[in-house]
Deep mutational scan, measured.
Amino acid sequence: QVNIAPGSLDKALNQYAAHSGFTLSVDASLTRGKQSNGLHGDYDVESGLQQLLDGSGLQVKPLGNNSWTLEP
């Protein structure tokens, strides 16, 4: 069960990665100043990332080996 409060997208993504045990490689300029609506409930990694990114204009991309990145 994930419980991440709304706020900074950077912070939300870092909390989610730490909670879910995956690696997220992101260029900080992509997420700077963006906000997230947070995340509450049970999600697989990709669904949770998509939910956190909702409205940010960013997309999640798998890199393999439980690693992910973001792209515009």
Rank of each mutant, 00 (worst) to 15 (best):
Q1M: 14
Q1I: 13
Q1R: 14
Q1L: 13
Q1W: 15
V2K: 03
V2N: 03
N3A: 09
N3C: 15
N3S: 11
I4K: 04
I4G: 03
I4F: 02
I4A: 01
P6W: 05
P6T: 05
G7Q: 10
G7D: 06
G7T: 10
G7C: 11
S8R: 10
S8N: 10
S8F: 08
S8Y: 07
L9G: 02
D10H: 12
D10G: 08
D10C: 14
K11F: 13
K11P: 02
A12L: 08
A12S: 06
A12N: 04
A12I: 09
A12R: 04
A12V: 15
L13T: 01
L13M: 03
L13E: 01
L13W: 00
L13Q: 01
N14P: 02
N14V: 12
N14W: 13
N14K: 15
N14D: 12
N14A: 15
Q15M: 11
Q15V: 07
Y16H: 06
A17I: 07
A17D: 05
H19T: 11
H19G: 08
S20I: 14
G21P: 00
G21Y: 04
G21H: 08
G21D: 08
F22Q: 07
F22N: 06
F22V: 11
F22T: 05
F22E: 05
T23M: 09
T23F: 12
L24N: 04
L24T: 06
L24C: 09
S25F: 15
S25N: 13
S25I: 15
V26Y: 15
V26R: 00
V26N: 01
D27M: 06
A28P: 14
A28K: 11
S29L: 09
S29N: 13
S29F: 10
L30P: 03
L30T: 04
L30W: 03
T31C: 08
T31F: 03
T31N: 02
R32M: 12
R32F: 14
R32Q: 12
G33R: 05
G33A: 04
K34D: 03
K34N: 03
K34V: 08
K34G: 03
K34H: 08
Q35E: 09
Q35A: 08
Q35F: 14
Q35Y: 15
S36F: 03
S36Y: 01
S36Q: 08
N37S: 10
N37H: 10
N37M: 12
G38P: 02
G38N: 02
G38A: 04
G38I: 02
L39M: 06
L39C: 05
L39D: 02
L39F: 01
H40T: 11
H40Q: 13
H40A: 10
G41F: 03
G41A: 02
G41L: 02
G41D: 01
G41T: 01
D42F: 15
D42T: 14
Y43N: 03
Y43R: 01
D44V: 05
D44R: 05
D44A: 06
V45N: 05
V45F: 12
V45A: 06
E46L: 15
E46Y: 14
E46S: 08
S47I: 09
S47M: 10
S47C: 13
G48K: 00
G48H: 04
G48D: 02
G48M: 05
G48A: 08
L49G: 01
L49N: 00
L49A: 01
Q50Y: 10
Q50T: 12
Q50P: 00
Q50N: 12
Q51A: 14
Q51K: 14
Q51H: 11
Q51G: 06
L52D: 00
L52Y: 00
L52N: 01
L53V: 12
L53T: 06
D54F: 14
D54W: 14
D54T: 13
G55D: 03
G55Q: 06
G55N: 06
G55P: 00
G55S: 04
S56R: 00
S56W: 04
S56Y: 05
G57W: 04
G57C: 12
G57E: 05
G57Y: 04
G57D: 06
L58N: 00
L58I: 06
L58C: 04
Q59H: 12
Q59D: 09
Q59R: 14
Q59V: 14
Q59Y: 11
Q59N: 09
V60E: 04
V60R: 01
K61L: 09
K61T: 07
K61G: 03
K61R: 12
K61A: 06
P62M: 12
L63P: 00
L63S: 09
L63Q: 07
L63I: 11
G64L: 04
G64Q: 05
G64V: 02
G64N: 06
G64A: 05
N65C: 09
N65K: 11
N65M: 08
N66K: 06
N66V: 00
S67P: 00
S67C: 11
S67G: 09
S67Q: 12
W68S: 04
W68M: 05
W68A: 04
W68Q: 05
T69Y: 10
T69C: 11
T69I: 12
L70K: 03
L70E: 04
L70I: 15
E71L: 12
E71G: 06
P72K: 09
P72C: 13
P72G: 07
P72A: 11
P72H: 08
